[in-house]
């Protein structure tokens, strides 16, 4: 995380006495933090894409209007639609697993008892 050189004392990035616990279920607070960090990184990508589009328009490679008006071929569209379904499934997998988990085999061997 730190950007300091080897000879420098790095800045502290973490807050002393971490105490941000609000959810009784284990891990939820961490998941909130991870989700926010992911959203932030996604925003970085969106800004970078906007920069590419701006630069492309400036260099007359293509314009933002051309991007807005771009039409995928039916084959490209079908491929993308399928990919978006898979994408959503990956992102929301935990919800599917919760439902599918209900169909567990009653004879499933139990794991060893937790210590």
């Amino acid at each position: 995380m730190s950007t300091a050189g080897a000879d420098k004392k790095p800045l502290r990035y973490s807050v002393r006495g971490k105490d941000t616990r609000f959810f009784s279920a284990e891990g939820v607070d961490e998941l909130v933090a991870i989700s926010m960090a992911l959203a932030q990184e996604l925003w970085v990508v969106k800004e970078r894409l906007a920069a590419y589009e701006g630069l492309a328009a400036k260099k007359k490679v293509f314009t933002a209007k051309e991007i807005e008006g771009f039409k995928f071929t039916p084959a490209q569209r079908a491929k993308l639609d399928a990919e978006s379904q898979a994408f959503i499934d990956r992102v929301f997998f935990t919800l599917r697993e919760r439902v599918e988990g209900l169909a567990a085999d009653p004879d499933e061997p139990a794991p060893p008892k937790e210590p």
Partner: peptide, 15 residues
């Protein structure tokens, strides 16, 4: 609602 507000506000502060 309180839990999400609080958790996200703490994280936002640190971020």
């Amino acid at each position: 609602t309180f839990k999400f507000y609080s958790s996200m506000r703490c994280n936002a502060q640190e971020m």
